[in-house]
Amino acid sequence: MEYWITKIAYYLLTVSIVMVYGLLLSAVIAKTMARVQGRVGIPLYQPFIDIMKNFGNRTAISHGIMFYLGPVFRLAGGLGTLAFIPVIYGSEMFSNFHFAGDILLVMYFIFFGQLGMALGAGEGGHPYSAIGIARGLAQMTSYEVPFALAVIAVVVQYDTASISQIVAAQQGGFMNWTVFTNPFAVAAAMLAFLGMTGYAPFDVVMAPNEIPIGPATEFHSSYLSLMQINRAIFAGAKLVLFMNLFFGGAGNLIELVAKTWAIYMIPVIVGVAFPRFRVEQSVRFFLKIPTLIGVLAIFYVQYIVLK
């Protein structure tokens, strides 16, 4: 019993750290972009103020039970993803609830939030929500293909479905990282990651100038602040997952921040450099080159790495 209480306390600590980190990350990116454009930009605490303001709104109307549950499912997706990812390798405090097959559960949780959101946004009744959800699900099913192939390649390579063992197998110098032992898997996964973060060119879900906010159109007040919190946690969880699977994990907090920061900059830089894809372009993109790279990664593991 005491073991679980400590575990849950450590997990809550991890969640708060990842949340603050995720919010600060988005603020720093916004600030950097503002500086590039010659502006002063938002203060770093702006995301926190926005969340608190939405939380403190005096009115909040509802469209029904599923409308309540939409943001809750979304948050559950984010929290669930984080719950089974060991954040720092070798640390009891940040190891979370990892077990032998946790990578499969984490992959499930990544998509769970989107499905819950689909139900909630559908009940909101706004046409933009429905369009955004349809686009999001279509895009999700397509970028899941290269991502799943990359994960399968990694699982075959290290012969384990446990994230902490995958991290353990990559220790001992950076040449042991997956990015160097199996570059094809990492390439496929990073291309899928571009779609996962939803920056341009794959921002078909929130497409500005088209369906401006997308699924969240009807959500407001506390619902919206839940979703903002989830966005930070979810972004942090995905970054940590990618770092664990492909970039050798992190031994301490500083390494964690440095590595996740570097991973996060990839979609950001791609995002500022490319315009938005149309929906069908975006969906087809993942099913072409990234999928082929993913298949190649499995062959590479089977015939070259494992001989």
């Binding site: 503002a34 502006r39 002063v40 930009g41 938002i42 203060p43 702006q46 103020i49 926005d50 939405n54 401006p212 906010i213 969240a216 159109t217 009807e218 959500f219 407001h220 919206l224």
Partner: peptide, 14 residues
Amino acid sequence: ANRYGIQVRPTPRQ
């Protein structure tokens, strides 16, 4: 105006 916390939302709910 972004530096004063002013931003544009495309939906009246938010």
